[in-house]
Design a protein around this nucleic acid. Structure first.
Lengths: 235, 235
DNA sequence: TCATGTGAACGTGTTCACAGCT
DNA sequence: AGCTGTGAACACGTTCACATGA
């Protein structure tokens, strides 16, 4: 398996290549999933229309998104599934292993540690931390829970380069600071707080509370608009 | 394909509710959290500058966001914390109880069922389903896991009006269809698939795999830009 | 002929800067 | 004065429509 370097960096004399617009970037993993599902079904070619359908987007948007990584479709034919899949994987950096530490081994942290969706996509959970002595030392999947006091040591030992924060909101900023100080520059946070980090650190947030509240807004609106539902008119 | 003869201003803008732009709507829960934290600290007034800081946004954006729900700040002074908090809560429909069913009682589903972040914000988990006979009947928090065969019956009995999907990708669409058929119109999905639903059903997706892949993109980029990619972790 | 790739149009989101109110 | 609320400018994202090239 040869890892092709990027021959098409010719446009820029130096510099890290073109930036992918954030909105497009966020869709690439979805395309990748659809493509890999097709690969599993031995589909070799796909049109923008078909792939867009599978990804739940308009075909023009898909074509524009893919055009940011180069133009490797064949006019009149479509895209080579395997090639595009590989291209997206390479762009996302999935050709290397990412070593992920999970900080916080509560219900959520333990569930994440056992979540197969991580491992199967180039992410390996290599450490799991908690502050609770009743949890430290216990086994979760293949991992033994470490004490958060050993955070810095263990991160170095395991070569962690990404972290998942699944700790209570009150301690999230503090642990985030420690992760950053230890050199972690990519953090996925499940804590319902706004984390302050230096500019070079990437934080992505997953917030189930927020998502439910957004759903509640729409649900309430639908309720009010519905003719069938009686006496629900708050006011 | 679809002819864009959508009648704009279809819904008479007369009602108490204009549409909140999606981007603004997604930030309201964050403001709400910041406001509630302030309330807990007995803060009575806040300026757009301060609240924006707490929410991690620019003050002009915060003011514009709040302006969609009305204008209830005092010029020269700021906003009444309690009042704005209540206003946002009401808009999001958090003044009523939302009854949530969790479909899929694997690692993630069970963690979500025990997650206190739900209960504390107007969302009550009232049902938990799984297809695995080894899990059905077991206790998770205050709930007993029901068999997914009884989905429709239990949804009706519990008065569920929101659902969380935490099932394997392969069965997600099928269960989504059953939820929709049973009248559920708000679904939060953790399954890494694009769900097809009728237009009146709201789906929000949480995808940890996608988030990690986006992080990987940035991390790889930083790696390439940096000459010494060895994480020596110098304090 | 076909489906991609893309300039241009359109729509949405964010920021600026200041008018207007307290 | 001080801070909100908002039009206008700007930036970003999406869609259209067609030129391009297999």
């Amino acid at each position: 398996m040869t890892t092709p370097d990027f021959p098409e960096t010719a446009s820029g004399a130096e510099g890290p290549g073109r930036e992918i617009p954030p909105a497009s970037l966020a869709r690439l993993p979805i395309y990748l999933r659809a493509l890999n599902a097709m690969l599993a079904d031995s589909v070799e070619r796909v049109s923008s229309e078909e792939l867009a359908e599978a990804a739940g987007v308009k075909s023009a948007m898909l074509r524009k998104d893919l055009s940011y990584l180069g133009s490797f479709g064949t006019r009149g034919v479509g895209y080579d599934v395997q090639f595009v899949s590989h291209k997206i994987s390479a762009l996302l950096g999935l050709t290397q292993e990412w070593r992920v530490a999970i900080v916080g081994a509560g219900n959520l942290g333990r569930a994440l540690a056992r979540y197969s969706g991580f491992t199967t996509r180039g992410f390996e959970v290599v450490a799991l931390f908690d502050a609770d002595q009743g949890i430290v030392g216990t086994q979760v999947g293949w991992l033994t829970v470490s004490h958060v006091d050993d955070l810095e040591t263990e991160l170095k030992r395991t070569g962690t380069n990404m972290a998942v924060l699944s700790v209570p909101a009150v301690v999230a900023q503090e642990l985030c600071d420690r992760l950053v100080a230890a050199g972690v520059t990519s953090i996925l946070s499940f804590a319902p707080v706004v984390l302050q980090v230096p500019a070079h650190v990437q934080v992505r947030k997953v917030d189930m509370g927020t998502e439910l509240q957004i759903l509640a807004y729409h649900a309430q609106r639908a309720q009010e608009a519905e003719p069938g539902s009686r006496a629900r008119s708050a006011q």
